[in-house]
């Protein structure tokens, strides 16, 4: 935790007042889905008893056809939706039981990248990327320093003063990724981040996620683009009819194994 943000912002129960620090907490899974049910219509559940455990530092693809519930899964995780049954544990805390006031502190530990970038068009790159740090109330000097470092990391060094509206699609997605990682979250979620990009840019963006993962960040990458899954053998979770089918060695590895 370079900035020491996550610890202060979202305290696991072990660090709460009156409780002792538990050194084994670091070995626990970063994320656990335990029998999660979610339905928007009673006759058509999106998730039916979805269970999954994600270890600290993992890179995992979530795939499945459109409407399979990939986005719902992510929305449940950052508390934009509530589970109907089951539970989601993030850093040992049950997301569904967080009060409305605690949700912002949960989100400060999760970086999210969207297909449509969700950049504020009339803000500069620097302002867009610096938002998570501004929210934490860090001094302007620290924000600028940190944003500069992250922009270098995503290949946009020196572009901080350009308006987001003048950037290309690939550059916008890099800015969105920079914004997602600037506060060093415990988990990086990507919801179809390459959906609006051409195949080559998509591969570049995936490479960027892999670079970020190599620094120890846990990444959950939701995509329906099978070509990305074959680039490198990674754990793949296939969502089908509301359940998870876990393929630990990637789809290609599983196909070879079956052969």
């Amino acid at each position: 935790m370079v900035l020491g943000l996550s610890d202060s912002a979202f305290r696991p129960s072990a660090l709460r007042r009156g409780q002792r620090f538990d050194p084994t907490a670091a070995d626990r899974p970063v994320l656990v889905f335990d029998g999660v049910f979610k339905a928007y219509r009673p006759d058509c559940p999106v998730l039916r008893g979805f269970s999954l455990t994600i270890q600290r530092g993992e890179f995992m693809f979530v795939t499945g056809p459109s409407g399979a519930g990939k986005s719902t899964l992510l929305r449940l995780l950052y508390a934009a939706e509530q589970v109907d049954a089951g539970r989601i544990l993030f850093l040992g805390r049950e997301v569904g039981r967080l009060t409305q006031d605690s949700v912002p502190f949960l989100r400060r530990n999760i970086g999210i990248v969207f297909q449509d970038f969700k950049l504020i068009e009339n803000f500069t790159v620097l302002e867009n990327v610096g938002l998570p740090l501004q929210v934490l109330g860090l001094p302007e000097r620290v924000v600028n320093l940190r944003v500069g470092e992250v922009l270098e990391r995503v290949g946009l060094g020196g572009r901080g003063h350009e308006r987001a509206s003048v950037l290309s699609g690939g550059e916008k997605q890099r800015v969105a990724i920079a914004r997602a990682i600037v506060s060093e979250p415990a988990l990086l979620l990507a919801d179809e981040p390459t959906g609006n990009l051409d195949p080559q840019l998509a591969v570049d963006i995936l490479g960027l996620f892999e670079d970020i993962h190599s620094t120890g960040v846990t990444v959950m990458f939701a995509t329906h683009d099978r070509s990305l899954l074959d680039i490198r053998p990674r754990r793949v979770v296939v969502l089908d009819e509301g359940r998870a089918f876990d393929v630990p060695q990637g789809l290609e590895g599983a196909a070879l194994g079956a052969a």
Binding site: A9, Y78, D101, P104, F105, L106, R107, R108, I112, K118, L119, I120, E121, F123, L131, P132, V135, L136, R179, S183
Partner: peptide
């Protein structure tokens, strides 16, 4: 609305 949505997604409190 995008600004508000982004702020809430990066962990801004309602008062912020």
């Amino acid at each position: 609305h995008v600004e508000v949505e982004v702020l809430k997604l990066v962990g801004a409190t309602d008062s912020y």
